[in-house]
């Protein structure tokens, strides 16, 4: 619960910074409605495992335990951000987080390569590639899935089906029974999971991780959810009806999981509110920190190209 609340708070701060024109450039891509997927998936991973994110990658960065101060410093283009202010896609190799997504499907074949290295080096570590329903139509995803099957790679292909590829509804683009149904064609186990339930996602990913660690190869998981905010923060979703959006918000994972924890007497509404206040204070501190950080020095434009 904490991870999901923290994801939403960090992303809200990022979105607000853009809407108040504190930061500019390409607008923030929020994962509102998708928090359970990153939170559940990352809970099933350990040290030395790698995740490769989409452009909507902040959820996974937060869920993997990256420091919100340095995430926000990066998104504020400051030199003390994780990538020294050089990317929207926050990366921390020490925690196994590779931020990608500038080219939609590209992280998936590369995650396969990391899995190949993990396998060839004799470790039991795994790699997980996040990608969206839109990317699932890309050849790179098909090729990477086929190669992962052929070489029995310790890879988890985690498709976040948030129902929209920018403005295109998934049902317009996908004519099979599900995205995960394609897994059979690759020769991989395919699983559909409720992407608004962090525990269901965690269980599905944990099973895939166990299979991969045991040498059983890759798994294709489709986690279904609803994208609640626009493709990017400035997108007000005029292509969706008010009824549809109202209905979508009923699938908000934070709302659903909060109700469940309350119902099961694990976390009361008061306790959740207190947790959220703490998180909001932490994120406010991270924003204040990011604002004070220096921008990269001009000479840094010419650094970090060559190894």
């Amino acid at each position: 619960m904490r991870a999901m609340l923290l994801i939403r708070a960090v992303e809200k701060a990022w979105g607000d910074a853009y809407l108040t024109e504190e930061i500019s450039g390409i607008p923030p891509s929020l994962s509102t409605g998708q928090e359970a997927i990153a939170a559940g998936a990352c809970a099933a991973l350990g040290d030395g495992d790698f995740v490769f994110t989409t452009h909507r990658g902040q959820a996974a960065q937060v869920a993997r335990g990256l420091d919100p101060k340095r995430i926000l410093a990066e998104l504020y283009c400051r030199r003390t951000g994780y990538n020294k202010g050089k990317s929207y896609h926050v990366t921390d190799m020490t925690r196994g987080v590779v931020g990608m997504g500038g080219i939609v499907p590209a992280q998936v074949p590369i995650a396969g390569g990391m899995a190949l290295a993990q396998k060839m080096r004799g470790t039991d570590r795994v790699s997980l590639a996040f990608f969206g329903d839109g990317a699932s139509n890309e050849g790179a995803v098909h090729e990477a899935a086929a190669l992962a099957a052929m070489w029995t790679l310790p890879l988890i292909l985690l498709c976040e089906n948030n129902r929209y590829c920018i403005t295109q509804r998934d049902t317009d683009a996908l004519k099979g029974p599900s995205i995960a149904a394609r897994a059979a064609g690759y020769g991989l186990p395919g699983v559909v999971v409720d992407g608004t339930d962090p525990l269901a996602v965690q269980a599905a990913v944990a099973e895939a991780v166990a299979r991969a660690r045991a040498g059983g190869g890759a798994t294709f998981i489709e986690a279904q959810c609803e994208r609640l905010t626009g493709h990017l923060i400035h997108d007000t979703q005029p292509y969706r009806s008010r009824e549809e959006l109202e209905s979508a918000w009923k699938h908000c994972p934070i709302f659903l999981f909060g109700e469940r924890l309350e119902r099961e007497r694990i976390l009361s509404a008061d306790e959740r509110a207190r947790m959220n206040r703490e998180i909001e204070a932490e994120v406010a501190g991270a924003v204040a920190h990011a604002r004070t950080q220096p921008y990269p020095a001009i000479h840094e434009a010419y650094e970090d190209l060559w190894a």
Partner: peptide
């Protein structure tokens, strides 16, 4: 892609 990822690994 596998080469890129393996090289990073």
């Amino acid at each position: 892609g596998a080469a890129v990822g393996a090289a990073m690994g």
